[in-house]
């Protein structure tokens, strides 16, 4: 029962923050509501016994990615709300209608979903989310995660070089 109450509180925070992000005219407010949403998701990950992912979510998303967003917003002085040129056009109505259809489809596929077989005990799940367990799985040569992991490092390197080359001022 406490788990269910926590779920609903977090769900309200999460969805409320996401809605605020979409509806806010001001990018800084959007970014802050998204941070709140990410923090709520990190708590979800911890309750789903993925402690490592929860911590990484806070460090990467809330600590680095969103700070970068805020930095760019403030650097380009985009604090003032952008007046939308499509205000009152059909695009918004169409978007919301299509979104409703998508939500319906996703809901139908999600809400009746049940996993066959016996439930996984919390102790087993708890042991799977620790830093040690994640590391052992990620670096195990008999499992298929090691090569993608190293490929990701190459991707990150390319991204770093690309970002520097793109934003460098022409000398």
């Amino acid at each position: 029962m406490p788990a269910l109450i926590l779920f609903w509180i977090l769900a309200i925070v999460c969805i409320g923050a996401a809605l605020t992000m979409v509806t806010a005219a001001n990018p800084v407010r959007s970014a802050l509501s998204l941070v709140v949403c990410f923090l709520a998701l990190a708590v979800y990950y911890v309750t789903l016994s993925a402690q490592f992912i929860g911590a990484v979510q806070v460090v990467v998303y809330a600590g680095a990615v969103m700070v970068l967003f805020l930095f760019v917003i403030m650097l380009l002085n985009l604090g003032a709300p952008v007046t939308s040129s499509t205000k009152g056009s059909n695009q918004n109505t169409a978007a919301v209608a299509l979104g409703a259809i998508l939500l319906l489809v996703l809901f139908i596929s999600g809400i009746f979903f049940e996993i066959p077989g016996k439930a996984v005990s919390p102790a087993t799940a708890q042991a799977q989310g620790t830093v040690k367990a994640v590391g052992l799985t990620l670096y195990n040569p008999h499992l298929p995660w090691l090569f993608p992991f190293e490929a990701t490092s190459l991707l990150l390197l390319v991204a770093v070089v690309g970002a520097i080359v793109m934003t460098r001022r022409q000398v």
Binding site: L48, Q91, G99, L106, F113
Partner: peptide, 20 residues
């Protein structure tokens, strides 16, 4: 199913946001 539904709601909010 609760988690899947929540994730569906968040995903839809994201999609609508991209369009709007």
């Amino acid at each position: 199913s609760y988690y899947l539904s929540l994730s569906a709601v968040l995903f839809t909010i994201g999609v609508v946001g991209v369009l709007v």
